[in-house]
Amino acid sequence: MADISITTEDIPSTNPAKAVKMLHFTGQLDESNVDEKSKEVYQLIEAAQGPLYLIFDLAGLEYMNSKSIGYLTDWYTKLSEKQGGIVLAQARPNILDILQVVGITQLIQSYATIEEAKAAVIQ
């Protein structure tokens, strides 16, 4: 079974009405763990009282399958409905490759560094 951990960090925002959190992914998201692990992200989304932006730090993510990308799309849709969103940061080349081939990078912005991702959502 593949190992995956997601740790959450609150990011200070200049706009008190907008919450920003960073999720650090470490390991592999695949068929053996993604259904269970996705619940943690859904809980964050459902608990949000207002607009919530999530920065996904993918530096430690070694693999993601098509279902993980399906969940990513669903999270983005749900957050967008609350005027929030998701941005990606530090994705490895193989992760960026699969996100591009599926077309997700046309929907969700991906940044090379954490600083760029933060700058994009903290305004």
């Binding site: 098509s66 279902k67 399906g70 799309t73 081939v101 599926v102």
Partner: peptide, 17 residues
Amino acid sequence: AFSGIRGRGLAKIVSAW
């Protein structure tokens, strides 16, 4: 239009590569 969590594997990944 892909609307659900599933369904991208064969069409969007396997076919493309």
